[in-house]
Design a protein around this nucleic acid. Structure first.
Lengths: 116, 116
DNA sequence: TAACTATATGAGTCTATACGCATATAGAAT
DNA sequence: ATTCTATATGCGTATAGACTCATATAGTTA
């Protein structure tokens, strides 16, 4: 039961693939990753995100929009400010997992380069 | 110990962000997801991948190259054929996780649309 | 209302990359 | 050696989307 069957038959429609791909695409941008990382510390408004990331205000605004569309970030208005926060904490774990995977691969490559 | 600290300080260099982003970018393409899904059933050569995915041979070849570069897929030559296989099984789990997340969100949206 | 602040957005430019077509290359079989 | 099969790749085209600059919009304060 715990071991998944080797054959995953026909599933995953074309539309589902598009959705999944677009979700990954949201994370395929250094600027957006930077924003996510800044939000992991604590929630921030757009101006604070501009300072934290070094991006322009227009850029941060658009990227935050993407992240909200993808359901990764939430927004609430407070006075003039728009406060952004991580909406889906599993994102953080996901990124950590990916990071660790990459680090492992890289250190293996380094080992190979050094050893041969 | 199990709870990660709320503040993740300065880490994650610019280069690391680029790496992570490019890793995600590899998964941000429906065609490549299709190839990965086909390989989850069992390893396949390029021609079989062409049949399984409906992509052109040139396209499959290039996408496989990307997947190999990202360390997700492995290749070995057998006669004239090039056999491709999932190199990093964690990819499969990752995709499943993402799928489940998306499904949850979508069904919530449907519920909201129906309920309001 | 007017002036000011925080955020969003329109328009244009530029780069990355997916695709198709044709062709090159590697290996097998005759 | 020639031919056939499987895969890779050069090149041109088209599209997506990230960025900048300027400006619009929403909300605040005097």
């Amino acid at each position: 039961m715990a071991t998944r069957p080797k054959k995953t038959p026909p599933p995953v429609s074309e539309e589902a693939l598009l959705l999944i791909a677009s979700w990954f695409r949201t994370l395929a941008e250094p600027s957006r990753l930077k924003i996510l990382r800044a939000l992991e510390e604590e929630e921030k408004n757009i101006t604070e995100l501009v300072e934290a990331t070094g991006l322009t205000q227009a850029n941060v605004s658009r990227h935050v929009q993407s992240l909200v569309d993808a359901g990764m970030v939430g927004r609430r208005k407070e006075g003039l400010s728009v406060i952004c926060f991580i909406a889906d904490p599993s994102i953080t774990d996901l990124c950590d997992t990916v990071c660790n995977n990459l680090l492992k691969r890289l250190s293996n490559q380094v080992k190979k380069l050094g050893g041969s």
